[in-house]
Design a protein around this nucleic acid. Structure first.
Lengths: 187, 187
DNA sequence: TACGCTATGAGACGGAGCGTCTCATAGCAA
DNA sequence: TTGCTATGAGACGCTCCGTCTCATAGCGTA
């Protein structure tokens, strides 16, 4: 039934996911679906969690900060360009306000997406390549944010040059020894 | 009826917006709503367009690039922190894949959000404060993206220090004379 | 005033989906 | 065999949806 739910999520959208639909696609009785998930929100949460578990990825690091960041964001972008993961993210964003369970799932997904990037930046900071004082959420906001903007708000697909310019902009900021951005007007 | 639709959007969410609900809240006959919008998508599109028309804002510029960018993003963040605008954005993101009309509305909203920021950056570039060669969408991605990440993906409210660090990171990147980010590993 | 046009309100109608219920039965373990 | 559990099938009442008809209020014009 969870597989059927994932299929429905990818084809007709989360709003069409009901116990009846899932039972039809899965070829089981309608009452069975209601016995497992009396609430529609519990069904959706289980489907999303099951879908997320199959979407995890691991990116090998070679030690070069820029290369590793691009590789990590490339894997993230590939997932976001993919229809199913995109639908999952959209659904989680949409529903996390109304459903606490999905809100927790959204935060968990966000943490997973941050983890690889943060490890690279943290190690680079330990090697004194980057200046200290930049937190995990700020790193994620500056690296994932621009890509999320293109994918969600433009909207368009994320291309490699978007990733490169995002990483370069971040590294330019993070490599600057002294953060003195106050004198921003050239006079 | 459009006012009733906005009220519904802010209270029960876009998925509950139907001709019947709108007619009930507006105190008109159900058939009247169907006469005006035979399609549910047309009703939703009209409601969102009407809501957006009332949400426009204008930010005065003082001439200092950093100050103006922060002011512009502060207005944008205030809108995104607001429940109704947040719901509108979420709905547009969610629906733009399925509904062409809402997709166009989403792109239009995105353009409106970019416009003020781009004007500041373009003028600063003309004054040689910032290096040339940075396009409008890249500017928007690097300035709006990190804030959208915090608001949509974390999710949390956008605070002033988030805006300041985002602007400072962008200015550090855009003020750099020669973009030579290739030697990012310190060896 | 009388007439005609238009938009509206009220409500009926069939259809579809939802949530709950009952009942028979297949699977399985003691 | 016996008993327990999960399941499939389907009935029932309910709500909502989309369409339809009909009477009427509003309004401009002759």
């Amino acid at each position: 039934m969870l597989e059927a739910g994932i299929h429905l999520l990818a084809t007709v959208g989360w709003s069409q996911i009901t116990q009846q639909r899932v039972a039809e696609v899965a070829g089981v009785g309608r009452a069975t679906a209601y016995r497992h998930w009396p609430e529609q929100s519990a069904l959706l949460a289980d489907i999303l969690q099951h879908a997320l578990a199959a979407e995890s990825y691991a990116v090998p690091h070679v030690g070069d900060t820029r290369t590793d960041l691009i590789a990590e964001l490339h894997a993230l972008a590939a997932a976001m360009n993919d229809g199913l993961t995109y639908d999952i993210v959209i659904t989680l964003i949409q529903q996390s306000g109304a459903n606490d369970e999905l809100g927790a799932l959204n935060a968990q997904l966000s943490r997973i997406a941050r983890r690889g990037i943060w490890r690279i930046v943290r190690d680079a900071t330990a090697r004194h390549e980057l200046r200290p004082g930049i937190g995990e959420t700020q790193v994620a906001a500056q690296l994932i944010g621009p890509l999320a903007y293109r994918r969600l708000l433009m909207p368009e697909r994320i291309e490699l040059n978007h990733i490169e310019s995002t990483v370069d902009a971040f590294l330019t900021y993070a490599q600057k020894a002294a953060p003195e951005p106050r004198d921003s007007n050239g006079t």
